[in-house]
Design a protein around this nucleic acid. Sequence first.
DNA 1: TCTCTCACG
DNA 2: ACGTACGTGAGAGAC
Length: 370
Amino acid sequence: MEIAEHEKQIFEKAGVRFNIASPKQLGEVLFDKLQLDPKAKKTKTGQYQTGEDVLLALALKSDIVQDILNFRQLQKLKSTYVDALPQLLNNKSQRVHTCFNQAVASTGRLSSTNPNLQNIPIKTERGREVRKAFVARDENHVIVAADYSQIELRLVAEISGDPAMREAFIQGLDIHTATAAKVYGVQLDDVTSDMRRNAKAVNFGIIYGQSAFGLSQNLGIPRREAAEIIEQYFIQYPGIKSYMNNTIAFAQENGYVETLLKRRRYLRDINSQNATIRGFAERNGINAPIQGSAADMIKIAMIHIHNDIKEKGLKGKMTMQVHDELVFDVPKDEVEDFKELIEFRMKNAIKTEVPIVVEIGIGKNWLEAH
DNA sequence: TCTCTCACG
DNA sequence: ACGTACGTGAGAGAC
């Protein structure tokens, strides 16, 4: 088996047998025995850090690193999904039935347990094989998957009112390309893939309150370059800068922030004397209205879709929610009805000035439906 | 039971 | 001088 092959390679290259799944043992092999990094960082409990980003930085020094990363990826897929999911099949239905928790996440998102169906793999080739296992109930049904496109950035544009970002969405531009053109001061047609990649990282980082340091780490660029990108970003999108300042000021005054539908997140540390602790509260404050408004929107859509299905006497079912996506199991002859009502309800859940875009796919399994 | 790591949005 | 990107859940190891 492939995992065993990587294990064998790792033992040969390390010159010692050990438990690769133990971060403690792995750290000692990499940094004490093999001395791959004399300045290796440790966790607060004194172990060496061996996370993916740390290992990737070591990849040039030893080819053991790639084996470890492959071993980790395959082990994760096997233990968390391939071995675990069949155990959770319900006897009667022969299906997995997740539990959606409505009062866990502090932003208003749902969470999912037993099993968690909100973290089914999609990013890697091997992971996508797992997603293929989620199939329609029979040959007469299909999976319908409906995704909000760039929902959090659209809500940043909506909530902040930033003219340039709103305009980009109104014109139907690719937001990362549009951002790259602005930040680098070039025409849309002259945006390179590197420029777009950097702009995409900034767009996401902004939603989380990322610093120049964080962006430089993420992109592997000098901190000064990251700082310049962020500076240009706020010059081009001044409304986003003021959203961030205004939101923090509101939180300092009121002790909470709120979403479009007035869901509150309280921030007890927003006025802390400790800059690190205060920083966490500030980033929570910037992010919560965005993430939480997206959660409000999809929840409203879910209620309307549920009512529509009932009123129209449709047989298809809404089966899953994954933060910006809804998944349905639908009889083939109801597909057109479903597509129409899903798109309408998702687009119009909350009245916005920024256009909301929904992408709908169909397939015999969840992967195909994307 | 806690820590580390990693799967997703 | 300091730490440095938000929200989750689960498996494995260590204690």
